[in-house]
Deep mutational scan, measured.
Amino acid sequence: KLETFPLDVLVNTAAEDLPRGVDPSRKENHLSDEDFKAVFGMTRSAFANLPLWKQQNLKKEKGLF
């Protein structure tokens, strides 16, 4: 399991300012399950079932792209 970080560490943070080991294209993977659901309004599995373009739009909207 990946290390999780608080939302404010990941949202609207440039790649070079992210904690070590965080993939800038997969910031959402480093949210706790609770934060993930609070941000996206759905579970990880529901998010994973969305088309890629919709996932990317949601990530942009939430500052996690």
Rank of each mutant, 00 (worst) to 15 (best):
D33A: 09
R26I: 07
L31V: 05
A48V: 10
Q55S: 01
N29L: 13
G41Y: 00
L64T: 04
D17C: 07
V22H: 03
A48D: 14
K1P: 05
N57M: 12
G21Y: 05
L58H: 02
T13V: 11
N57L: 13
F47E: 01
M42H: 04
A38C: 11
H30M: 05
N29Y: 09
L50V: 02
F47P: 03
K54E: 14
N49P: 00
L52K: 10
L31E: 02
L2I: 15
N12V: 02
K62Y: 06
N57C: 13
Q56K: 10
R44L: 02
D35K: 01
F36R: 00
E16Q: 10
V22I: 12
E34T: 15
L2E: 14
Q55R: 08
L31W: 00
P19D: 05
K60Q: 11
K1N: 10
K37L: 13
L10P: 06
Q56C: 10
G21K: 10
N49C: 14
D33H: 05
A14Y: 03
L31A: 02
V11I: 13
T4K: 08
L58R: 01
L52I: 11
V39L: 14
N49T: 13
L10T: 06
N12Q: 11
T43C: 10
K62G: 04
L2R: 15
K37T: 09
Q56I: 13
D8K: 11
E34Q: 12
T4F: 08
E3Y: 14
V9Y: 12
H30E: 05
D17N: 13
T43S: 14
P6H: 08
D17I: 04
T43Q: 15
K1T: 04
D23G: 02
V39M: 09
N49M: 08
E34L: 09
D8I: 02
E34N: 08
N29C: 15
N12M: 10
F5I: 10
F47R: 00
Q55T: 01
A14P: 14
D8N: 11
F65C: 15
P19V: 02
L64D: 04
V9T: 08
K62I: 10
L50R: 01
E28P: 01
Q56Y: 13
N49V: 10
T4N: 06
L2Y: 15
W53V: 14
V22E: 04
L50C: 02
L58D: 00
D8L: 01
V39D: 02
K54F: 09
K27I: 15
K62W: 04
E34D: 08
S25Q: 08
E28H: 01
L18A: 08
F65S: 15
L64M: 07
R44K: 14
N29G: 08
N49H: 09
P6K: 12
T13K: 15
A38W: 08
V9A: 09
A15W: 03
K1I: 02
P19I: 02
E3I: 12
Q55F: 00
L50I: 06
F47I: 00
L64I: 10
D23W: 02
K1Y: 11
E28Y: 03
N49G: 12
F65K: 09
